[in-house]
Design a binder for these strands. Structure first.
Lengths: 336, 336
DNA sequence: GAGTATGATGAATGCGCATTCATACTGTAA
DNA sequence: TTACAGTATGAATGCGCATTCATCATACTC
């Protein structure tokens, strides 16, 4: 039952070689004759031997483990997709993802020691924002860090984010050109840079175009909060004729509030634009006009930063990925 | 930059003790005087020392890592939720989740050696089905295995699943009592036991109630496939007045196909019942009657099987969790 | 054919920790 | 005072592997 697992010594003995030779047989660049390698691998196969990654990690100082910190993964399908993409890509590089979840209540920094103790080769941080000194402890040890859709100013951490400010500007132009008169903004949680930048680009561009102040309500990146915020926005004498929601998930709630609760016609009486292009956005019920943000590209870029093909891992780099406005049926399009 | 990370020897030196004493200071059950422990921990704090989990794993034969295999995580929000729950619960037990993704095309068994090499303390398999001998290799090494919503007959693996057969029966009763005349079933992918059992319970119970054969179409556990399957089912002279979809996600597609493509009124002309109770099911647009399946309970049960409070890990146990019919507005309810 | 480069292999070692085992030290009973 | 628990600590060791380093066999040069 609890038989000691087979080691490289067992394989060595069966193959009639020394233990280091077994090691070399499993090292693609190992100095070993083809015939010996074949003999060793055959012996390994017979014994069901697999090199112990933990022991290997101890000597090589490389665990092939990448730490991935995520908070609130399951709000939308975006982060699950990021997660799958990461796992897939890293697996292809022979690396594995060690997952850490941040509790709503507790700060991220609390689990950092845990992560550090696992000697991860790199650290990916998504949808949560750690303290600067924690990050620096990793980078100072030579562990590259990359944050997704978050930035912490003046750190050695890399960051990959969709260009939220540019996206906000896209929406501003789209709604302004669509001849909307009473434009509103539905914010996400205030502290997130994501939300702030989307709003900034949106507001700046509207101002540039000569459009004045706009009304604003706050949601919390959930369907329900979008639903409620839409009611506050719309259930009044002078309701907006366009709402830019800082996230698709809120936009869906907003659309349902407008249509089913208030009987407002979309897009005739109200245009709704989201952000993210989650899968549901293209469902016929919603057919949501939104800014598309590719999880796959985000991940691809992040992986390239921490495990570049031929260079040293990057440090302190910030990459912004442009978004794309996807016109669907939830918003009145500009003429022409 | 690449300064050798601090080890227990560094801490020992600073605290004026030997290395084993440092070890004991970090072991809650370690034989060590309170004053010495305090001194050691203070020294550790100063140096930013954290015990190396990899090295520890080598000596203790316990990595505190749990392997989690998932395929197709991001179809719905159910598995992401399972994932988060697992991570959270295991973190609370001082354990971490090492994630493995199975590619659509490749068999699960291919990544098994990788998992084995990481000496995981336990293995959780979700939404994918491995070969029996692979499983047995883990359990024979004393590594408990638990599968979620899948079973492989005659293995030493544990399994936790929602009682799909009972759920199917619930739906059969509900639709039969609702006086539906032309009941149809929308199947998921045929090979999955999940689908087969839901269908079996449904069919058996209908037969018991004296209802004859029912029409059937096949989807693939996606919104789009549900949409298409619904068209095949409904776009004919004698369309069903009730569809039981083997998964919510297909039910949503089916509802949209019926309402928006064919102009069928729900629930007046057609009742739709799903399975899973994903978050979208309760959105006003869908308001889907379905069988609720708790991800949290599933995870809780699975964790209890592989890490029982006071016993040995379970082996070969199969636990079925009852589902619950959630009546909403997408289906005509039985009178009374 | 003597000398040198090349390649394949084994002996020895250490990664950082937990865990024996042995030792010193403290207090209590005889 | 002697003896004997009990406690706290350090020296030594090994987990399983990769990586020097040294050794030996072979091939090649002039």
């Amino acid at each position: 039952m609890t038989s000691r697992s087979t080691t490289s010594y067992d394989v060595a003995q069966l193959a009639g070689v020394s233990q280091p030779t077994v090691s070399r047989a499993f090292d693609p660049k190992g100095n070993i004759s083809p015939s010996t390698r074949a003999r060793v691998l055959e012996a390994a196969r017979q014994l069901g031997y697999q090199p112990n990654a933990i022991a290997r990690g101890l000597t090589t100082q490389r665990t092939d483990i990448v730490g991935l910190i995520m908070g609130n993964i399951n709000r939308s399908l975006f982060y699950p997709k990021v997660l799958v993409e990461f796992t897939r890509r890293l697996q292809a590089l022979g690396k594995q993802v060690l997952l850490f979840n941040t509790h709503e209540s507790r700060p991220v920094d609390e689990i950092m020691p845990r992560i550090m103790s696992y000697q991860v080769d790199a650290l990916v941080i998504a949808s949560t924002t750690p303290g600067r000194e924690l990050i620096d402890r990793f980078t100072s040890m030579g562990t590259p860090v990359v944050m997704l859709n978050r930035t912490v100013p003046q750190t050695s951490a890399n960051a990959v984010a969709s260009d939220n400010e540019a996206g906000g500007r896209l929406v501003a132009d789209f709604l302004f050109d669509g001849r909307h008169q009473r434009i509103a903004f539905m914010a996400g949680v205030d502290v997130t840079a994501t939300n702030a930048l989307r709003k900034k680009g949106f507001a700046d561009r509207l101002r540039e175009r000569g459009y004045g102040a706009f009304r604003e309500e706050q949601g919390e990146y959930t369907y329900d909060s979008g639903y409620e915020a839409a009611l506050r926005l719309l259930d009044r004498d002078d309701p907006p004729d366009a709402i830019f929601c800082a996230a698709d998930i809120m936009a869906l709630g907003a659309m349902d509030a407008a249509r089913f609760k208030l009987g407002i016609k979309i897009p005739d009486e109200l245009s709704v634009v989201g952000y993210d292009d989650i899968p549901m956005a293209k469902w016929p019920t919603y057919d949501l006009t939104t800014i598309h943000q590719s999880a796959a590209r985000l991940v691809e870029t992040a992986v390239e930063l921490i495990f570049p093909e031929n260079n040293e891992p990057a440090s302190g780099q910030v990459v912004l990925l442009p978004g794309e406005l996807i016109q669907r049926g939830s918003a009145k399009a500009p003429p022409g």
